[in-house]
């Protein structure tokens, strides 16, 4: 179980770094809530790397100056994984 979570936690680490260092450079620009990087992170946490990146890419393509914006959450998984405060996925499902 733990080994299965390594790829998604590597991706989470990259996204955490991106959100801490690069994202603030241009401030709040996303037309959606949660922002694209947060959406991609949640999608990878809950759906795994392959499906997560697919969802994240589609979201970035949806986010353009002509989009209406608004609240747009990730597709709800059957059962959510628990995550740490920083965003790393634990080998436990939420109760």
């Amino acid at each position: 179980m733990k080994l299965m979570l390594i790829p998604r936690n590597v991706c989470v680490a990259i996204l955490v770094a991106y959100r801490a260092v690069i994202s603030p450079l241009y401030g709040d620009v996303c037309r959606y809530y949660p922002s694209c990087s947060r959406y991609a992170m949640e999608a990878i946490q809950q759906h795994g790397v392959v499906r997560g990146i697919w969802f994240g890419t589609r979201r970035i393509l949806r986010c353009h100056p002509w989009a209406a914006g608004g609240v747009d959450d990730i597709p709800e998984p059957r059962r959510r994984f628990e995550t740490t405060r920083a965003g790393f996925v634990l080998a436990r499902k939420e109760q």
Binding site: V29, C30, R31, C36, H64, A68, G69, G70, V71
Partner: peptide
């Protein structure tokens, strides 16, 4: 708060954010 704000913008058909496309 952010959720409600975004909903309010969407309802009004406007959005103050540019999206990251220009970048």
């Amino acid at each position: 708060m952010q959720r409600e704000t975004m909903e309010a913008y969407k309802k009004a058909g406007t959005n103050p954010f540019a999206s990251c496309l220009p970048l």
